[in-house]
Write a protein that binds this DNA or RNA. Structure first.
Lengths: 336, 336
DNA sequence: TATATTATATGTAACGTTTCATATATATAC
DNA sequence: GTATATATATGAAACGTTACATATAATATA
């Protein structure tokens, strides 16, 4: 009668049902209300096709059931997988997810954090690269792969153990002299522990090793020079390579093939992350697998934890090795 | 003095600056206001670290600067890329994005639509599989890859032309007898026009062809039987294959290699989508590339168009061919 | 100097909920 | 039949904004 086009409000429902505003609110929120009232309200809701306005709810309750996810992008398979599983974990708890693709841009990261806070999100999960990121004290924040002080919990896989595992795997496959290749962010983040873990593993298994670390901005072709320099009479001076990511491992695989070096016959290659072609097919390379679904669940749990129990500053989840064709099958009995 | 812990509101800023509420609002929204007032308000905002509450704004304006994206998941590279570029396009217009991963579940799709509407989003972009999806009349909706009636615009690449292009490419590479392989959803959606386009292309270039179409639930292994059945004396009876997606093409590539058939020497293989390893590296296979960034931009443009100009029911964006190693290099002069 | 005209700040109502104190109806006891 | 206790519905206030009608100050005109 009054306003035809706009969406109906609780007031409209109340009028239609001939009850008070508060009664409608109770019905909508499942609070106890007389049977006859409930029915009248429910039919009115049906008739008007009423839906609650969660912005009004959010304003009143200052609880919005929304969480922001800051992540560089969604096309990197690791980020894509994390995004998906965090979305699922949030949905399971009836939370919505605001996606914020930051493209590794510290300025954009800060902008998104500010925006998220204005949006009164109930929390932020962030895989960020801005060492000076300012997050408001009373917006819960969970970091992925980066420690941001003792107040902010960080979720990561056990990167150190992963590095160790890679070394041990190479050792048990018969490698003697190995290499570690790393590129990407040089910030002090959790994935950088892969190097320390790998060194520790090499030492404990008697492997000698060398390293090639690229800084931000260095061309990935540097790895090709590095590899070429280690070819003597058609042979590579090392017999195993551990790359800091599967992404790098795939690059390196291409370089090795171009140089006529066979994988895994001439050199064993292990990556890190557990990337599969299309998400459910074979691993792209032999790899240390991050438990992405568990990490996602853990982020959400930590973020939305109600109890005041102190949140752990770092949660490391276990990694596993997966055979992906760039290492030989393990022979358990012979020690060549 | 009063409430220490809670976030400051406009009222607090007004009190701090000694001005009226409306003046603060004007400053925040960049409306004209006396210079001395502006300075006083801005310093107060700085001092209190005030941030607008966009839930209050949303309630008042019934405009939330939020758009929901419904997509099956983010780990499929095509979806991941779409998600990223839509996020970027929205951000460019200062819109936020609510990510809704539906896992192809029609029930979940409907649930997300309802949720999005309650959330008073300004619009929904959806790549959905529920033929009966109910979307409220006054929530703008843009579909990707599926026509949902004349009222709802649909954005897609030119799938028909893509099919044609694949056929023409195979023809110009010297193929005589080709095959079309399709799996995935059998709903009436835009990508299914690839088949018709391919047939048209084959006919116009004098190629004979056969098809193998799998229905929902059929095992992908069926393609392996199909291929095996067409091997006579170690030779495949066709010399070109067009797969409905790169994903399928990669599967088929594996099958062919397993069967000892060389690609592209024995058979040329073309996929569809334009998937690259890790988003910025080589194409996984020779492919018809969808213009994902343009499609993303178009979705956002159509969704947020202010003018009342009738929205086109279907927008097809041009595709291109990309060489990805599963076809031979084109020899422009000889016609073998 | 007094008046008309403009420009700009003020403060209140409204957006659609939830909550809580109040009012009403129902049942129980005397 | 009245008084008391209990249960449940009611409606106003509040959440933090924006917009508009009103009030105030500043400027131009006579």
């Amino acid at each position: 009668m009054k306003k035809e086009c706009s969406t109906p409000t609780m007031k409209d429902v109340a009028k239609e049902a001939g009850v008070a505003l508060g009664t409608v609110s109770k019905v909508v929120n499942g609070l106890p209300v007389g049977e006859s009232y409930r029915i009248r309200v429910e039919t009115a809701i049906q008739k008007l096709n009423y839906q609650v306005n969660s912005y009004a709810q959010g304003l009143k309750a200052s609880k919005t059931y929304t969480v922001a996810l800051l992540i560089p992008n969604t096309f990197d398979p690791f980020f894509a997988s994390l995004t998906y599983y965090i979305n699922v974990a949030l949905m399971k708890k009836r939370y919505r997810m605001l996606l914020c693709a930051t493209d590794y841009d510290p300025r954009l990261e800060q902008e998104y954090v500010t925006m998220a806070q204005q949006n009164k999100v109930d929390g932020i999960i962030g895989l960020t690269y801005n060492p000076d990121l300012i997050v408001d004290e009373n917006t819960p924040f969970v970091a992925i792969d980066r420690s941001m002080g003792s107040k902010i919990p960080c979720v990561a896989c056990d990167n150190f153990a992963g590095g160790q595992l890679a070394a041990e795997k190479l050792a048990s496959l018969g490698c003697r002299h190995v290499a570690f290749l790393r590129n990407g962010s040089t910030l002090d983040n959790e994935p950088n522990k892969r190097k320390a873990g790998f060194e520790t593993g090499c030492l404990s298994r008697g492997l000698t090793y060398e390293m090639k670390i690229l800084n931000d901005g260095d061309s990935i072709e540097e790895f090709e020079y590095f590899i070429s320099e280690h070819i003597l009479e058609g042979h590579l001076s090392f017999d195993g390579i551990f790359c800091v990511t599967d992404r790098l491992a795939c690059h390196v695989l291409g370089m090795l093939q171009k140089l006529g070096i066979r994988v895994p016959e001439d050199v064993q290659l292990i990556g890190f992350d557990g990337i599969r072609a299309f998400g459910n097919m074979d691993y792209l390379c032999s790899t240390i697998v991050q438990p992405v679904p568990d990490m996602a669940e853990m982020c959400v749990d930590l973020l939305l934890r109600e109890n005041t129990m102190a949140k752990p500053p770092l949660v490391c989840l276990p990694v596993t090795f997966a055979q992906g064709g760039t290492t030989t099958e393990e022979c358990t009995h012979t020690d060549q």
